[in-house]
Design a protein around this nucleic acid. Structure first.
Lengths: 206, 206
DNA sequence: ATATAAATGCAAGTTTATTTGCGTTTAGAT
DNA sequence: ATCTAAACGCAAATAAACTTGCATTTATAT
């Protein structure tokens, strides 16, 4: 017999919220579904990705996906954000120029990988979504703070001025990579990286 | 993936080719549909946009849309590309720095408008689609060529070397704007534009 | 003006996406 | 070990997206 909710009952002030299941089968399904989403996203792009295909690839019933994630966009965003949560390795070569060359090499490889593709697609999808844009922004602020150590070390070594706005510099360095990746068919190669780093560093008067 | 039909493609040289109708009712419907697409794209975003809604808003039967544009993605990219086909006004102030400041100001305003939003969404949407990516790439190559006049004038004035790779420079200038627009909630302001232009110009040794 | 067939409208179809009801499995609590 | 209900699988229903055949309109060539 189905329990009937009494509309006159007092609101549940206790912390007796429904006990979510995070382990076991639920966790396995979550992983399998996210994995399938990322593979399909890279294979066919967001537009052509279908829930039923995800279900087939993850060997999960599609009803389960509909009930847990509500919509395709929500599902994809969850999958991509979890995947992109890995920390960026911060180079520490002892010289700013070399650090930046390594950083941009890493960023290029990433952008040209399946995961990088997904991250870009997700970033743009969330442009119109207030709530999801918030997560993305704070996510990027964290990355930004994380990258600042490169510039702090450079200040310590006396390579740059302490009052340099390094967040602007990061945008100047990474922006062109994203731009080329989105707009052009050209690869993100050594020549481009060198041009960006050297122009930027010379530009800020090193 | 579905075969893509491009209504804008030039008639081929074969004499037995069907004679396309470009004027009258066809043109009116085309305009009404594109207008509806752009409005709905800004209102609800790509994901939530449906052909039937477009048909209703444009007062056209949805069958006509399906037959002419084949797919949602194709329809949207055609509409956005036509809209973004307005030529970029090329500044001609007599000095490269001022030209670039004006160019980036224009690009910023555009990126922060409804149309700019659509263009970015489309650009990313088409990353996974071979055929559509081609249109986008040649579209951007044209823009690139169009922008080159700024640098040709600067060479004539002796402001930069003739062998400067200005397509790389364009990526360095515009990339950061796109990057901030996609990843951050910060506005594309004067400070950023000045930083980009001055760092770039100083970087390439003006 | 007339003829031709391209483009559209309309009324069906079909196929894919999404929801719902219900029985089964199982994570987490006692 | 046992109990409870969250999460799942399955089948069947509904809704939305897309297609097709045919009649009508109309852009364009003659």
């Amino acid at each position: 017999m189905k329990p009937i909710k009494n509309p006159n009952s007092k609101p549940d002030t206790n912390k007796k919220t429904p006990k979510k299941r995070l382990g076991g089968r639920s966790a396995r399904i979550r992983e399998a579904v996210f994995q399938a989403v990322l593979e399909l996203l890279n294979e066919k792009g967001y537009d052509a990705l279908s829930i039923s295909e995800v279900a087939k690839k993850a060997e999960v019933h599609e009803t389960s996906i509909y009930r847990r994630w509500e919509s395709k966009s929500n599902l994809v965003i969850q999958a991509v954000m979890e995947k992109s949560n890995q920390e960026i390795p911060i180079p520490n070569t002892g010289a700013l120029r070399m650090d930046l060359l390594e950083l941009l090499k890493y960023a290029s490889d990433y952008l040209q990988s399946a995961d990088g593709n997904s991250v870009i697609q997700m970033a743009v999808m969330t442009m119109g979504n207030e709530e999801m844009a918030l997560s993305k922004h704070s996510f990027w602020k964290e990355k930004n703070v994380h990258l600042s150590i490169i510039f702090e070390r450079a200040v310590t070594r006396g390579e740059i001025h302490a009052n340099l706005d390094w967040s602007l510099l990061i945008e100047l360095l990474l922006g062109p990579l994203y731009f080329r990746k989105i707009m052009s068919e050209k690869e993100l190669n050594e020549e481009m990286i060198t041009f960006i780093v050297d122009t930027a560093l010379h530009g800020i008067e090193i």
